[in-house]
Write a protein that binds this DNA or RNA. Structure first.
Length: 524
RNA sequence: GCGGGAGUAACUCAGUUGGUAGAGUGCCAGCCUUCCAAGCUGGGAGUCGCGAGUUCGAAUCUCGUCUCCCGCUCCA
């Protein structure tokens, strides 16, 4: 993994955001190679999901939406989980997932070793004023509070207040600074009740929350909601008939509790989501269809089958909106992890937005038979099957899968690294290299690049350093073909074409080389 | 967020008991070069992560802070 991160920086795929200022956690910038790779992956997705079929149309919605969208979808509620800090071991955990403990029952605190237990003993005595008894690394004598749970790490009942932790990024729409309003509220409150008291604190909290949330909008935590909200617009403007899908790619934002594994989990990430609307009852059928379709696609962009698997969600890990979910998982260097979730969202979202907005979000099929009346013509709320893939994650998986440094290195030479990317997603399709920088070779080379560019093939001309170094550099960014211009080129118009994976070279006319590259792109 | 490790040039790393900052690779300019990162000459490059403290003097010792990596919790 370290090698991949290092290659990404060295060759211009991914840089850490704001690096010269010390970097910003969990934010990454995509360099010249990275932007090509990511766009190519997203483009392949769009081609597979939208352009190569008639039943799916695209959408590009704004990132900020009406705040009621998130209330209706359940994100405002389920993204604000009550978090608690343990005063003994410092662990932060979700109150609703903590171990239950009968109020008043003994709570045994277990630390990782005796030293920590000793320190904890003193800490509890000093800060909380409770004397406990120590036996090795466990502390006895504490009792569970009437909250009914204890620390998920050490078992202590000495906990901070529950705090809401909103996973959505909140900002404020409008030119009026909410801080200004908050200040006014505070000043008014001080005048009303100058003494500090728990009641004043509670009132202050309410006032401040209102000052901030009145103009609050959220950065979308998923692109999906825009597709539900625009359901009727799209049905009516494009005469879509069920089953059909709406596809969208774009950035989403989540305040993750932890960010990790390079670009794998970051607060700002890019999604490729599609909502497929089907008649009630046909959900399972389409789940099966999209499961195989999506795995097929990941293989098509180059991931090895042995590194891909489908995993069914356990009932207890299903999201609030879902009655069935499969993850497409990839075997990353740190283990199996999720690339895409294929979820049956039932009619949850359309129903929720019907309730939230008061607008009817349903579909009328004049041909279908209404199962209740037995008559022709059926109005229903479609069910949704959602393949939601991570573009950012996809790119990391592609990089991991293509990365190859297994070739034994020769004495005294640096390790050869090759990115074995499929031609279609490779940032540069073809590099044109003059063997030496003289005898008209640079001019001939540039002419060839122009020809390739005119044919719509992203190519690059490179004359720096010795030929071997240039080959190595292009191997590292995954360029599938290198054309080398030599002395013979100006005599008979031929070049040598070098295959990245085999390093085999062949002398062919420039025109034939163009055909080879075009054919490779056609195949994938 | 907690525990463990790390941060010195673009990269990989040296740097002695505290005494003015080093190498290789890369990069830039020029020369030379006819096929897989090894030629020659010259050049630029470092707030030693950041901020305090101890000291006559800190890359080196202490504290704080930020960032990254490895383990625990959730998502695409």
């Amino acid at each position: 993994m370290q090698k991949i991160v290092s290659l990404c920086k060295r060759r211009g795929f991914v840089f850490q955001s704001s690096e010269i200022y010390g970097g910003l956690k969990s934010a990454y910038d995509y360099g010249p190679m990275g932007v090509e790779l990511k766009r190519n992956i997203i483009h392949e997705w769009w081609r597979a999901m939208v352009h190569s079929r008639e039943d799916i149309v695209g959408l590009d919605a704004s990132i900020m939406m009406h705040p009621e969208v998130w209330r209706a979808s359940g994100h405002l509620a389920s993204f604000s989980d009550p978090l608690v800090d343990c005063k003994v071991c410092g662990e932060r955990f979700r109150a609703d997932k903590a171990p239950r403990a009968e109020p008043g029952s003994e709570a045994i605190i277990t630390l990782s070793d005796k030293g920590k237990a000793k320190l904890a003993l003193e800490k509890v005595a000093k800060t909380i004023g409770v004397e406990l008894a120590r036996e090795g690394k466990t502390l006895r004598g504490a009792h569970a509070s009437d909250r009914g749970y204890v620390c998920s790490n050490c078992g202590s009942p000495f906990l901070s207040e529950e705090r809401q932790f909103n996973m959505m990024f909140r900002t404020n729409l409008g030119p009026v600074d909410p801080i200004g309003r908050a200040v006014e509220e505070v000043m008014a409150l001080i005048e009303r009740s100058p003494a500090a008291s728990p009641e004043t604190a509670a009132e202050l909290k309410t006032l401040l929350a209102r000052a901030v949330t009145d103009s609050a909008v959220y950065l979308r935590p998923e692109t999906a909601q825009a597709m539900f909200v625009n359901f009727m617009n799209i049905v009516q403007s494009n005469q879509m008939s069920v089953p059909f899908g709406i596809a969208q790619t774009g950035k989403s934002f989540r305040n993750e509790i932890t960010v990790e594994h390079f670009i794998f989990r970051s607060c700002e990430f890019e999604q490729m989501e599609m909502e497929y609307f089907v008649p009630p009852g046909e959900g399972p059928k389409w789940m099966e269809y999209w499961k195989s379709e999506r795995v097929r696609w990941w293989k098509a962009i180059g991931l090895r089958p042995e590194n891909l698997r489908l995993r069914a969600h356990e009932p207890d890990e299903l999201a609030h909106y879902s009655d069935g979910c499969y993850d497409v998982e990839y075997k990353f260097p740190w283990g199996w992890d999720e690339l895409e979730g294929i979820a049956s969202r039932t009619d949850y979202d359309l129903t929720a937005h019907t309730k939230g907005s008061g607008k009817k979000l349903s579909y009328f099929d004049p041909e279908a038979t209404d199962p209740e009346t037995g008559k022709k013509g059926w109005r229903y709320v479609p069910h949704v099957v959602e393949p939601a893939a991570g573009a950012t994650r996809g790119m990391l998986a592609v990089l991991c899968d293509a990365f190859d440094d297994s070739e034994p290195s020769e004495e005294g030479k640096p390790q050869r690294i090759v990115l074995r990317l499929r031609p279609r997603i490779a940032p540069i399709k073809c590099a044109v290299l003059p063997l030496v920088k003289k005898d008209g070779m640079p001019e001939a080379g540039r002419k060839i690049v122009e020809e390739f560019l005119a044919a719509g093939i992203n190519s690059s001309y490179d004359e720096q350093h010795a030929i071997g170094k240039r080959y190595a550099r292009h191997d590292e960014v995954g360029t599938p073909y290198c054309l080398t211009v030599d002395g013979q080129t100006k005599e008979d118009g031929t070049v040598t074409i070098r295959d990245r994976d085999t390093r085999a070279q062949q002398r062919i006319p420039v025109k034939a080389a163009l055909e080879v590259v075009i054919e490779a792109l056609r195949k994938g």
